[in-house]
């Protein structure tokens, strides 16, 4: 095993794909909690899909802007954000499942707050772009 594969990130990715780890540690919680965790995972996945869909919609339907590459930057940002949300969703799902099986507190996460700030900042930046290009024409 190379040192790289022992790194936390790669260990986490291995755990996502290794069902025995999540399924055999500790004891099974009330399955209703597992189903709630499943629904939360799916809700995050839909959030990621919505961001990707938003990126595609910008690429397809927004006319080219006065400033070069503004459209492309918005599109790629939304696509990256969507992928990040999907990957973080599976990580959080697995960590919650583990915590429930071990009777530990659920993992706390700054991700929702960070995502909200990033989307808010992006919206304000877009507003500025739209207003400035509106004033110039």
């Amino acid at each position: 095993m190379s040192p790289l594969l022992n790194h936390d990130v790669f260990r986490a990715i291995r755990q996502w794909f290794d069902p025995t780890d999540v399924d055999e540690v500790g004891t099974a919680p009330d399955y209703r909690f597992s189903l709630a965790n499943e629904r939360t995972f799916l809700a995050w996945l839909r959030t990621g899909l919505a961001l990707i869909g938003g990126g595609l919609a910008v690429a397809a339907f927004v006319p080219p802007q006065r400033w070069p590459h503004v459209r492309e930057v918005i599109t790629i940002s939304l696509l990256l954000l969507g992928a990040a949300v999907a990957l973080r969703a599976v990580d959080h799902w697995a960590r919650c499942e583990r915590a429930m099986r071990l009777g530990r507190p659920l993992p706390r996460s700054r991700f929702p707050a960070v995502l909200a700030l990033v989307i808010g900042a992006g919206a304000v930046a877009l507003l500025v772009v739209v207003l400035v290009s509106g004033l110039r024409t």
Partner: peptide
Amino acid sequence: PAVLAMLVTAYAVLSA
């Protein structure tokens, strides 16, 4: 869930 997340990530990469 891991497979689904990879498929959604593939969506993003292929869209790019």
